[in-house]
Design a protein around this nucleic acid. Structure first.
Lengths: 339, 339
DNA sequence: ATGAAAGCGCTAACAC
DNA sequence: GTGTTAGCGCTTTCAT
């Protein structure tokens, strides 16, 4: 193993003090530009690399942002992460990413790790069944900026980045109503999570605004897996009064449901019009193409990191801005177009 | 800002030495289990958190693994990362993830950052157009284990984790031949990358083994985007002698190509049988369902991290094992079945 | 513009 | 089984 070069080695070689070397390497203004040159050149030649740990230890700052997400392997989340990485990288921050696999227990453990890793800030999208969010209190107490995105929680002094899920749910439902649907089934996820609760609200509001009654038997809370899509289809088959519209808050689930419905001879959108959520690639490939809500994953990721970094730089405080709402959009395709 | 608790604070309170506290907190065997209890309890009560930087600085180890991938937002890669995170997390390692966005320049910059972050090991899948891999030499020189996965390069002392792309290409092509195809078009990516070069080899070998000649005009090198899929379709339309088989090394590209082919009235698989690559979710949704090569992303990620960690622990040296080949599998679906 | 020196919090070799 | 002590490499205050 080659010996690591330190600023002491450079200092000794050039007959300077380590302090000067440190300053030169950090572009301190009070250093003669000539000495600065000499030092940086020597550093390069000697193969010096700065020791982030010593520096972090000394400065009490890590240039690292922690990210906790439910799952890494979803199309939406991969775009979020791509956006985060892009902005973080450009600003010289590292990203430590971990997944809760939809379990509170793992979420707590991950939060602990992030805390001990002394991340400068934390970005979180909550697990499916997280109830209490006390495990993030320690961040707030230590004034470590905490930001929730997508699956958020009300936590004072924390910024939330979301889309307007109520509106998205409303638009999806209203669109179905406009296409002539009168009995619209709604398949969604755990109502503890804002995203699903809000979409349901939007669904209900749209029904009300169009003088349709909310029917409990048309609401199905699932884990939104493909399996859940099949279940939903079976539920539909079993109903005496069949729904003529279907709003599923996840494209993959919607697509699997559509497959099963087609299988049993229902035609889409004539017998049942379908709207999904997320604008996943599959939505453009399924036959008929799936109407869905476009979800700005990459922007959400970019925004989240930008927001955090601005706060860390003091450019913009996060405590004042409390919620940032990104624009989502209804993408109308064949699966819901009856006219 | 609350004051940070250190092991000194705990030591002082309990009238013990910092060393004992440190040992207790790290579960050192030579510590009385009673004192251990007292210490851990006190630590918890005082809100102590270990300082990773001090520890890293002292131990010259970071417990961090660097990952450089071309893009985060692909289905395959998100599974790879999910697998990596899982194993790393369980073993107490952090992951620093960055994307090259298919550019060598960014790849070099990312490697530099990883190097300065003193990752314990580095996992790399190469960018589209990376030629030289000299920017990874410094890792080898510093004995930092370097492992390539999927898009790999021959670099001595580095483990590669791949699937047998020659075989996969062979199987895909042979399957088409068995379905009666005689003119098989091959749409693939930059041949600098092993994955594409090897699949082409497999394609050629299968042709030879079945007494078919390789026709240059049936080979199309693209960036495998959806746009490329459209181009491929147009190329097919323009050909005088139309191909009756199509092997595309990416499902998304294949699917977009299929869409265009259907549009102009070709029927799949009767007029042209299609095989993709990756087993992306879209392959099961497109009509007809796409025959493809299943690519074990999650396992590849798990394997890569496991391998690295074993090496770091001295459990298994990476210098001896040089290449690990994971099993891929042809998934036969309707898009290629003519019999 | 540069240097001296202290200390960030932890670990491990060595002592007892 | 526990304590003493010396750094790991860097930054920064205070001097000069």
């Amino acid at each position: 193993m080659e010996k690591e070069i330190t600023i002491y080695d450079i200092a000794k070689l050039l007959n300077l003090s380590p302090a000067t070397v440190s300053r030169a390497l950090n572009d301190h203004p009070a250093i003669n530009s000539n000495t600065k040159n000499i030092i940086t050149t020597a550093a390069k030649e000697m193969g010096y690399r700065s020791n982030t740990f010593a520096s972090n230890l000394r400065r009490q700052r890590t240039n690292t942002i922690g990210v906790i997400v439910p799952r890494l392997n979803s199309n939406f989340m991969s775009y979020v992460l791509a956006g985060m990485e892009k902005v973080a990288n450009e600003a010289g921050y590292n990203l430590i990413i971990s997944q809760s696999l939809e379990s509170v227990k793992k979420e707590i453990a991950n939060a602990e790790t992030m805390f001990n890793s002394r991340v400068d800030g934390l970005l979180v999208s909550l697990a499916y069944d997280t109830d209490s969010i006390d495990h993030f209190d320690k961040f707030v107490r230590k004034q470590i900026p905490l930001l929730f995105f997508d699956r958020v929680a009300a936590h004072k002094n924390c910024t939330n980045i979301i889309i307007d899920n109520v509106r998205a749910g409303y638009e999806a439902t209203e669109h179905l109503i406009e296409q002539g649907c009168r009995r619209i089934m709604h398949v969604t996820g755990n109502l503890k999570r804002n995203v699903y609760a809000d979409r349901l609200k939007g669904y209900k509001l749209a029904l009300m605004d169009h003088n349709l009654v909310f029917d409990d038997s048309l609401l199905l809370v699932t884990d939104l897996s493909r399996e859940a899509g099949l279940q939903a289809a079976r539920r539909i088959e079993a109903l005496d009064e069949k729904p003529d519209g279907l709003f599923v808050t996840n494209d993959l689930c919607a697509v699997s449901c559509m497959g099963e419905l087609k299988q049993v001879g229902l035609s889409i959108p004539q017998d049942i019009a379908v709207v999904g959520f997320n604008n996943d690639p599959v939505s453009q490939v399924v036959e008929p193409k799936l109407t869905t809500i476009h979800y700005p994953g990459q922007e959400m990721g970019e925004m989240a990191v930008q927001c955090l970094i601005n706060h860390l730089n003091g450019t913009m405080s996060m405590t004042s801005t409390n919620t940032i709402v990104l624009r989502s959009e209804l993408q109308i395709r064949a699966s819901s177009l009856r006219k």
